[in-house]
């Protein structure tokens, strides 16, 4: 019995529009969640600086495309390489010296990175609003009333699926991927069979930074605003996606991200008693609920600890 009067918008066109929006943003969140999962899988650390690394990449892409007039796709690819190199350097200099089994100091280091990178971007490019051009052509694939599927929306969705496919292939079909999976399963055993743990983790950081930069370059044109705080709420949505999908499952991250996008754009917008400003709150609620009810998420492996 429902005592609370809930009214839900059920206009089919509006609903379709919201579902399409949800898929579009959700695939962006899924991509960033994939980056978070790569690091979590390898090191067991939640990288709070992932969003800011992506932010740096986005600003590099902005500087190359808008500032120097290069094509946006080339700018994004160069930015991905730049952040990947930076992340590899960060891993080598300030992550590797810490004991990998003690996670809290590592998390605190990523918080320091969060502050430093965020402020570096604000100092270098000022806090003025900017706009990043989209990598996809303008216009609609189809439109039904208020609902329309844009080329950029379709492009984002496909890019993220291709990215997931590439990561899955990399992990399951290559030697680097095998080493990566070995390290994430057991660092000591991996070391004993001769895998270079440090370099493998460095590779994980670089890959995650490149994925995160691509995620940001996909999302920011859709958000239509670029300022140094743009990745903050995005990071919360991505964390929600990663938690929902299971923190150590790449497939789960993308699916979880899309589900969070749908929650943000369909559930929060359609249900009358949730104010639409509280979409970040909805994401936090998802994180809380998943961690309380099923900490391994939808696709993650549940953690068994011997005590």
């Amino acid at each position: 019995m429902f005592l609370l009067a809930v009214s839900v918008d059920t206009d089919p066109e509006l609903l379709l529009a919201r579902v399409l929006d949800g898929l579009r943003f959700g695939s962006g969140y899924g991509a960033l969640a994939l980056a978070l999962v790569m690091i979590y899988k390898a090191t067991g650390v939640l990288n709070f600086a992932q969003g800011e690394l992506a932010l740096l990449g986005i600003y590099i892409a902005w500087a190359l495309s808008v500032g120097w007039g290069w094509p946006i796709i080339i700018a994004v690819i160069l930015a991905m390489f730049a952040t990947a190199t930076l992340a590899a350097g960060i891993e080598r200099t300030i992550i590797r010296p810490f004991d990998p089994s003690n996670h809290l100091p590592l998390v605190i280091v990523t918080l320091g990175l969060f502050l430093a990178i965020n402020s570096f971007v604000a100092v270098t490019w000022t806090t003025d609003l900017k706009a990043l051009p989209s990598m996809f052509p303008k216009g609609n694939v189809f439109a039904v009333g208020v609902a329309h599927l844009t080329w950029s929306g379709l492009g984002m969705f496909i890019t993220v699926l291709v990215m997931l496919g590439a990561v899955t292939l990399l992990l399951n079909r290559t030697k680097v991927g095998l080493a990566f999976r070995a390290v994430s399963s057991n660092i000591e055993s991996a070391e004993l069979v001769g895998i270079k743990v440090g370099q493998t983790l460095q590779f994980g950081w670089a890959l995650a930074a490149a994925i995160g930069t691509l995620a940001g370059a996909l999302l920011v044109p859709e958000l239509q605003v670029l300022d140094p705080n743009v990745m903050l709420s995005t990071l919360v949505f991505a964390f929600a996606g990663a938690a929902l999908g299971g923190l150590d499952s790449p497939k789960g991250a993308v699916i979880g991200g899309i589900l969070v996008g749908l929650i943000r754009n369909v559930v929060v917008q359609s249900v009358s008693f949730i104010p639409s400003e509280l979409s970040v709150g909805a994401a936090v609620f998802v994180i809380l609920l998943v961690l309380l009810v099923k900490p391994s998420g939808l696709f993650g492996s549940s953690k068994v600890v011997r005590v």
């Binding site: 939640l46 996670h103 998390v107 400003e277 509280l278 970040v280 936090v284 994180i287 961690l291 900490p295």
Partner: peptide, 29 residues
Amino acid sequence: PALRIQGLYLALVTFGLAAVFPTIVKLDQ
């Protein structure tokens, strides 16, 4: 809820809590 959520996961949830606060303050109500 923090009793069931430990370590990193607690950091994650509380990170969300901090991100939500400004949006609650800005609610029209």
